[in-house]
Lab assay of single mutants.
Amino acid sequence: MATKAVCVLKGDGPVQGIINFEQKESNGPVKVWGSIKGLTEGLHGFHVHEFGDNTAGCTSAGPHFNPLSRKHGGPKDEERHVGDLGNVTADKDGVADVSIEDSVISLSGDHCIIGRTLVVHEKADDLGKGGNEESTKTGNAGSRLACGVIGIAQ
């Protein structure tokens, strides 16, 4: 089992970053940390998408990683996509320092995120509470600013 993974985020604009993942036990939580720069100040949706395909930019990554066919939600919700990591918060300089621990994603097994795409979005994720159909699919997080395929790390 891989215990570490990394993702280099890039987009068409100024947004870029490096996100690290570490899972010490196969059924334990995954620590997610790193930094994203070039964002507007505020909240930005942060999700693992189904495919590791960036051939047409971030759009070819498909929908959120959702092997259990659930509705979109927040990272602490029972009803959520596996890939729903909530929001990252950018400061006035456009930098989001990421520090998350998640017990639904994994670096092995059915919820493995390796080979899938991590995406940072234009807007805040409403965590499935926006009151419309799009909220239950995407959290109304808007366009995909930057993305990268999650790969095994040393």
Rank of each mutant, 00 (worst) to 15 (best):
R80W: 01
T40C: 14
N20C: 06
V120T: 08
N87S: 08
E133Q: 12
I18G: 14
R144L: 03
P63Q: 06
T138Q: 05
G109L: 08
S60W: 00
F65M: 12
T40I: 11
A61L: 02
K31F: 15
R116K: 03
N20L: 10
D102P: 13
Q23S: 13
G38L: 12
S103W: 14
G142C: 11
V88G: 07
G57A: 03
K4S: 07
E41L: 12
A90V: 10
K24H: 13
D93S: 13
V88S: 11
G42K: 08
R80C: 07
L145T: 13
T55P: 02
I150T: 05
D12P: 14
N66W: 02
P75N: 05
H72F: 00
Q16L: 12
N87I: 03
C7A: 05
S103H: 07
H44C: 11
D91Y: 14
G115E: 01
I100P: 04
D125A: 00
D91T: 12
E122S: 10
I113E: 02
H121M: 02
F51G: 03
G130A: 10
G131W: 08
G11C: 15
G74A: 06
D93H: 10
V149R: 02
G86N: 04
W33N: 09
S99T: 13
K137M: 07
G115C: 00
G115M: 00
V6N: 06
V95K: 12
G17D: 04
F51V: 01
L107T: 07
D102T: 04
H111M: 11
A124E: 10
E133A: 09
G83P: 03
V32E: 03
P29D: 12
L145S: 09
D77N: 09
S108V: 10
T40F: 07
I36V: 15
I19A: 07
L9E: 02
P63L: 06
T117R: 01
L43G: 06
G94R: 09
T55H: 04
P63N: 09
V82A: 10
K4C: 13
D93F: 14
G11H: 09
K10R: 12
G42H: 06
H72Y: 02
D91N: 08
D102A: 09
L9A: 13
I100H: 10
E22G: 09
C112V: 12
K10W: 14
G38D: 15
L43K: 15
W33M: 12
D93N: 14
S60A: 04
E133V: 08
G115L: 02
K76E: 12
D97Y: 15
L107R: 01
C112H: 15
D126C: 05
D97V: 08
I113S: 06
D12Q: 15
I152L: 04
H44N: 15
S135M: 02
D102C: 09
G130R: 08
D125V: 01
S106C: 07
V30G: 05
P75I: 06
K137V: 05
S108A: 13
T3I: 05
V149E: 04
V95E: 09
G11E: 15
A124M: 06
P63E: 11
E122A: 12
E101P: 05
D53F: 00
E50A: 12
S35A: 14
D53H: 15
R144D: 02
T89S: 10
F65K: 02
T55F: 02
V48W: 03
E78C: 15
D53E: 03
G34W: 00
L107G: 04
H111E: 15
I105L: 05
R116M: 00
H111S: 09
A90L: 07
R116A: 00
T55Y: 03
E50I: 04
Q23R: 10
R80S: 06
H49S: 01
G115R: 01
L39K: 01
D84V: 02
A141R: 01
E22C: 09
G34F: 02
K137T: 12
V120Q: 02
K10H: 14
E134L: 11
E41Q: 09
H111W: 12
R116W: 00
G142T: 02
D110N: 14
L39W: 06
H111L: 12
V48P: 00
F51W: 12
S106M: 12
T59V: 08
H121A: 00
S60H: 02
V48D: 03
K137R: 08
G17P: 01
A5R: 03
E79W: 13
N54H: 14
D53V: 00
N140C: 12
P67K: 05
Q16S: 11
D84I: 02
E133H: 14
S26F: 06
N20Q: 07
E122N: 10
T59H: 11
V32F: 13
S135I: 03
G45T: 01
A2R: 09
T40V: 13
T59F: 04
A56P: 01
A146Y: 03
C7H: 01
A124N: 14
V82K: 11
G45F: 03
T55C: 06
A141W: 00
K71M: 14
E22V: 12
R70D: 10
V119L: 05
L85K: 00
G86E: 04
L9S: 04
D53C: 03
D53N: 06
G94H: 11
V120G: 03
E25Y: 04
E134Q: 04
N66A: 11
S108N: 09
C147I: 00
S143G: 08
G34N: 02
I19P: 01
T89G: 05
V48A: 09
V104Y: 07
E78F: 09
L85Q: 05
L39M: 06
D102V: 05
I36N: 02
I105V: 12
S135D: 03
T40Q: 11
L107M: 14
R144K: 03
G28D: 09
L127F: 04
P63D: 05
K31N: 14
L9G: 00
D84G: 02
T59S: 10
N87C: 10
D125C: 05
N27K: 15
V104R: 13
P67S: 09
A96N: 04
V88K: 02
G131Q: 15
G45Y: 02
G83W: 01
G130H: 08
K10I: 14
L39D: 00
N66H: 06
L118T: 12
E79Y: 06
E25D: 05
E25R: 12
C112N: 13
S60Y: 01
G73V: 00
G57V: 00
G142Q: 13
N20T: 06
K37S: 12
G86H: 03
G83S: 00
T117I: 03
T40L: 11
C112D: 09
A96R: 06
V95P: 12
K92R: 13
G17I: 02
D97I: 13
N87H: 07
A56N: 08
G142D: 05
D12Y: 08
G42I: 04
